[in-house]
Amino acid sequence: MVDGRKPRPAFAPWDRRALPGLFDVEESARRVGAYAWLEMRLFEALGGWIATVPELDVKLVLGRHCFHHAWHAEQLQQRLPELREMNPARLTLPANDGIVAFAEALIEPEAAEQTIEKLVGVFRVLLPRTIAAYTYHLNGTSTITDAPTIRTLNFLLQDEFEDWREGEMLLQSLITTPEQIERASNRAKSLESLIVAAGGIAGDGTLGQGTDESGTKSEAVSQ
């Protein structure tokens, strides 16, 4: 019989969580707000594109992913009041003007012949960036004080990984000619340029490296 009165440590020997983290409350909230803003632009674009893509399988995947990203935005916004922002809309903002430019370019394709451009933007540029940023956040933030954000990001990442894989498979099935390879790489290149200029989905320091005024990378982090 286990003696429940015998003292045990608060942390089990295998529990390696620690207090230190890269972000204070404000920085974690700022990042979460920036993620939410971009998830919103993404689900709106996916919803709008459904009617513009002729490929039936792509249409259905966009319908499913549209909800995933809307739900991500909701989950992120629900975290904001817990990070001292009682009006989530006030922090649901783009990280900088560069991200606005990136989002506008991402959403821009409309024609039925541009399915590759639409999907490359989401699945070869944005989702890899989102996965990287969320992973950096949950690896860097305090595993004890910011645990609710980590939990939320883990839920989101599960969708992001699965959606990324599904979108990449769609792209591989759509890109079959040298001309289509060219289109896909051109599209990725132009969007990559924009998001690199923005510093990542959360702006400078998205992955811990900021850009100083001379344009060179520094190791500056938020904390």
Binding site: G47, L62, H69, W71, A73
Partner: peptide
């Protein structure tokens, strides 16, 4: 819009 996104998944 969240409700409409949910409806997208349902209709899909």
């Amino acid at each position: 819009k969240l409700d409409m996104a949910r409806q997208c998944w349902d209709e899909s």
